[in-house]
Design a protein around this nucleic acid. Sequence first.
DNA 1: TGTACATCAGTGAACGCGCGTTCACTGATGTAC
DNA 2: TGTACATCAGTGAACGCGCGTTCACTGATGTAC
Lengths: 208, 208
Amino acid sequence: MSSDATTRHDRPRNARGEGDRLRQEIVTAAHRLLDSGATVTLRAIAREAGIAAPSIYRHYTDLDAVMYDVIGDSYAELTAVLQDRAASAADPAGAIFAIAQTYLEFAERRPERYRTMFGGVWNAAEAIDARPDADHYGRVGMEAFELLVSVVEDCVRAGSSTSTDPEKDAAEVWVALHGLADLRRSAPMFPWPVDIAHDTVARLARLT
Amino acid sequence: MSSDATTRHDRPRNARGEGDRLRQEIVTAAHRLLDSGATVTLRAIAREAGIAAPSIYRHYTDLDAVMYDVIGDSYAELTAVLQDRAASAADPAGAIFAIAQTYLEFAERRPERYRTMFGGVWNAAEAIDARPDADHYGRVGMEAFELLVSVVEDCVRAGSSTSTDPEKDAAEVWVALHGLADLRRSAPMFPWPVDIAHDTVARLARLT
DNA sequence: TGTACATCAGTGAACGCGCGTTCACTGATGTAC
DNA sequence: TGTACATCAGTGAACGCGCGTTCACTGATGTAC
């Protein structure tokens, strides 16, 4: 059939000066692949994007560089949805629970994406460390955490938390949420107490 | 050079009736590979064990079957070391902290092994579910957890914990330990509070 | 006691696969003269 | 206005690699007669 023996939609080439559009299409294709649970390889991304594999090299040096952008987008998306849900909560304590629930939902609905972001198969930390703009991306990843810290602080001000170290308590909440997200997926037969998330968060955030 | 173009120690063949020894050598080779951080493939295991790749099929149907045994051994080892350290603690509360520290050390010293056991790359749950003797292995994995539950119960009896649901509180402690083990590896630049493990465990086990 | 044979432990060569990566290229479009 | 040329976006064919898996085999050793 076609030359590459793979499906290739007849994608119209971008206009002159618009070459960067393909860069975004590559990232989008990688997102789709990740969310569908398929293995993410350069060739798979190319197939998903409807382009030839070598075309990726015009925009990225390697797979890590692509994943780096995928992770940047993912952090931004997670942060946005957490902020959104926290903002619509009735009170600070409600915001904490909203964040916890939203975080767990994100991890459950996009397990591979979550794993890519938080230390799954692809080691984000390593790749980010290797970048000249590591600071910027480290900060993007921290935004969601800082939201959590500030919500704990809100709780203290509102008198609904007895925390004396919101930063530390927020870290403990994050750790517990991550552990829960990860273990629920890998040990689904474990008899999980239904209210474990709510209970753990309440204790670690020192809610009254 | 040699036929397979790879190093092959001249391993003496096992005596008649002793064929099962190779089965153990295969698992041991897989452990070494895992602990060295190398990618675990059938061919890599064969190289590490000093045998030809097809020889593995005489003992295992596929890589999953090998990993299944690797995981069984790993659970047994972790459980043993946890029991050991818990037993030499001065009191029940000390036993909890000993378990926590030992668990985190295990995860830090053998990161790939830990990830293989608790939902990393290779999905233990899936492979175990597919086995006829799934119950047995599910229980092996549970032993370490049950140790934690019983130590929390000891604390309650000794008056050093106010827990009213040791099983649930033990689950929360486990979740937090797993989250900490996993995130510390994947987010090493995060400003981890030094006493976060001690603090989290004390709170979740309701130590007084 | 000798010998034919079955069993056992393990091998070597070969295969097809998807992968990352290279290379020289194609063909459309803007720009200089 | 026409035309030569540079640039840009993207391709197709090919490569070597390690992988899982198959197949027919080799050669040592225990067992039956």
